[in-house]
Design a protein around this nucleic acid. Structure first.
Ligand SMILES: [Zn+2]
Ligand SMILES: [Zn+2]
Ligand SMILES: [Zn+2]
Ligand SMILES: [Zn+2]
Lengths: 162, 162
DNA sequence: CAATTATTGTTATATTATAACAATACATTT
DNA sequence: AAATGTATTGTTATAATATAACAATAATTG
């Protein structure tokens, strides 16, 4: 059962993604005794504005519009906070951030990323996990974190090629 | 048969890695009608100085010492050249580059990376490939490139913990 | 040799990220 | 509520990573 979020389904109700993410964030902050301050919530909303990973500097204008300080440390602090709680992932090859679809269950960062429309869809890795563990174990490597990026063309972009 | 290079074997003869990499580079440049100029060869040697990924700016001093121009574009051009021929990989989460152990056979970038000693050991992904293809196919995704990073502690660093 | 192309040199700038410290807001104790 | 300590945000400066643009040189081709 390989699951994925709805990122590549252009018909999905994205408001559900956002409201779900906000609900998750509130619950997780609660559990961890952390505060989802206005800045943090705004940054989370902005990151969840779409399923396309956003760079830190792309968030600054919206912070300014909302009346907050919009210097880099402000947004990086919020991103670090959200990242540490597992509410967002960082896509290393893009230097960009995207919302986590399932923060209630901590898991590695694993995405299919469309190089055309830039959409990043999170992959459920439980099946892959066995393979990774086998590779690691066979070399005495203690696996602690994973960054998995599958790059290519999503269904929609394949369909609309020249 | 999961294979790996000798990166995590501290006893390995690293001169073999370097000379092999140089031989491969010369052959591949030949086949592709490209020139392994002195700058490009030096950058490749520097990247192969160890199995620890190096940032572009870490290479500049050595370029200067060797009498070359040592401005960023020089090293980025050489890195881009080597990357396009598959002679080196870029580790996205580190913004750093490491030599490819098997450039004769183009393949995705896949590494185990020790967060303690910084060594990056390339993983043979043919077994994982089936899983990745299955995930991609099941979502109509046309897989074109992969960046796989497994982070953790290598055998040696596990053994010498406090 | 002349013309063309590839490579390198050079200067400037764009992009991404963090350090350091001050000011404010929040929480806790009295 | 006032005092205290902690967490968060504001602010300025700078570090680290990467590219744009054009000039100069070297290599290749005709
Ligand atoms: Zn959505
Ligand atoms: Zn996630
Ligand atoms: Zn070696
Ligand atoms: Zn390789």
């Amino acid at each position: 059962m390989l699951e994925i979020n709805d990122a590549f389904n252009s018909d999905h109700n994205h408001d559900h993604c956002v409201s779900g993410a906000l609900d998750n964030a509130k619950a997780i902050c609660q559990e961890n005794g952390q505060r989802l301050t206005p800045i943090r919530e705004l940054v989370l909303r902005l990151v969840w504005g779409s399923h396309k990973p956003l760079g830190a500097y792309e968030l600054l204008p919206a912070l300014a519009e909302a009346g907050f300080n919009s210097a880099p440390p402000t947004v990086y602090r919020a991103l670090d906070f959200l990242h540490q709680l597992g509410l967002i992932h960082k896509i290393g090859s893009l230097n960009a951030f995207v919302g986590c679809s399932n923060p209630e269950h901590p898991h590695p960062s694993a995405f299919m990323i469309c190089t055309e429309c830039k959409t990043a869809a999170e992959i459920e890795t439980s099946e892959l996990q066995a393979s990774f563990n086998r590779v690691a174990n066979s070399h005495g490597f203690q696996l602690e974190e994973e960054n998995i990026e599958l790059l290519g063309l999503c269904k929609d972009c394949l369909g609309s090629e020249s």
